[in-house]
Design a protein around this nucleic acid. Structure first.
Lengths: 238, 238
DNA sequence: ATTGACATACTTGTATGGTAGTGTACAATA
DNA sequence: TATTGTACACTACCATACAAGTATGTCAAT
């Protein structure tokens, strides 16, 4: 039953967006059961659009569906975080290289406006706002390189990485260091210094490696168990 | 990797796999109308699993769904091909670099077995078989680098690139040059020659750039029109 | 107290009917 | 003849009913 006044988005899409947002900002905590019936009643829609949203969310590993058993908000998989970071690092540095290779001067106006907004968000201690601007910052770089597809791919496959990052900011509070690195990156782009830009990017993305252990101890339920298959209590290798 | 003889998959998954295979090998030609009802009747299942397969296929841009109008096999979008190639090149070179950086010798047995199989497929002029082995070749490299996620991402977002490649082989016939490049790549990996390996990879992936124009002329209906939005007959800029 | 059969209340998977948006063939009109 | 109104066929979207797998609590038998 489509709501009339609001836009032309399909119900299925709206459900998808709402669930995605709430999973990404950890309002829906990892491991939470999410039955199709439950969600459909809470959102006052039928099971169909909810189910279709689940399909898309499970493609991004945000929801884990176990047939005839249940669906759950995916727990954060640290091995996946590693792979998502590799993906991200690869694409970001490639885009960076392409931008710097480009001989003509880049229209960085929007990027610089974004940096100012980041500064403002930090001053307001607006955690969610800053993360959104962070994402937009990287999106702008991809757009400048004329590679929007790569950005959307990266976005779809940063779900675990970004959740752990959100968690990190919740614990350590918002930090200016990310912003400083963004500023530095733009400087390197303007200076056409490709090697320093790349190492700056690597440093930028690798930052939260140290915090992982702390978060793992503080929120153990948010993370996936090491074993995917069933426990073997008779196993001798442990 | 899924075990084969074991339990049957869901109907939805089967429909997805069948449609994907037939779209990728151009049995279902770009632009073909594919209504949910049609497909469901042809496959003797209900509309639901077909619809769910369509959702996943449209996420990979293999099917274009126009609400209340119809669903169609996506035409090949050359701009998307460009972006898919960028994605592919970025990830492949990153994996290559990681493999070569790794100090310990790599277990290349499987890779070399795959090369032999490629050779055999070429001698049989088995086009489809060679393309599968080609894909497996790259998959093996990603597995060696412990980055299976990146491979599956690349696979999901190579749909337009691979179709144009399939088309190219249909026209020009199978060629040994791809195989030769694979052999050369493995040699470069063993020699730990990162810069030559990277340029070899770029050359490997960029090969079919020249053929694009020919294919575009020969199969114009397979390709997407330049304009995505509606024509504006009042526009002055043209 | 322990075990085991079984009813029951969940879950997701699949089928189907109804709704509204969209294009088109065709007849009515000028 | 040219144009316009309209009925109809077709679509994807959504709601709902049913089917089948799974976990769990209850109760009887040992």
């Amino acid at each position: 039953m489509r709501k009339k006044g609001e836009g032309k988005q399909s119900t299925s899409n709206q459900v998808y967006e709402i669930l995605r947002r709430n999973i990404m900002n950890l309002t829906l905590v990892p491991g939470t059961p999410m039955s199709e019936k439950d969600i459909s009643e809470k959102m006052k829609v039928s099971r169909t659009p909810v189910r279709e949203a689940f399909i898309r969310l499970s493609n991004e590993a945000l929801v884990s569906v176990f047939p005839q058993k249940g669906s759950f908000v995916s727990r954060i998989d640290l091995d996946r975080v590693r792979e998502e970071r590799f993906l991200r690092e690869s694409l970001e540095t490639s885009v960076l290289a392409q931008l710097i290779r480009n001989p003509e001067p880049l229209p960085l106006r929007e990027v610089k406006q974004n940096l100012e907004d980041q500064d403002a968000a930090l001053n307001r201690e607006d955690k969610a706002g800053f993360l959104e601007l962070d994402e937009e910052f990287h999106a702008l770089l991809f757009d400048l390189a004329d590679q929007p597809l790569c950005f959307s791919v990266m976005k779809s496959f940063s779900s675990h990485y970004r959740r752990i990052r959100y968690l990190s900011m919740s614990v350590s509070g918002v930090s200016r260091s990310n912003y400083d690195q963004h500023v530095e990156l733009v400087r390197m782009i303007e200076a056409k210094d490709i090697s320093r830009a790349e190492s700056e990017m690597k440093h930028h993305l690798g930052k939260l490696d140290d915090e992982k252990e702390i978060l793992l101890r503080q929120y153990p339920d948010y993370f996936m168990e090491r074993e995917l298959s069933v426990d073997d209590p008779f196993s001798i290798n442990r």
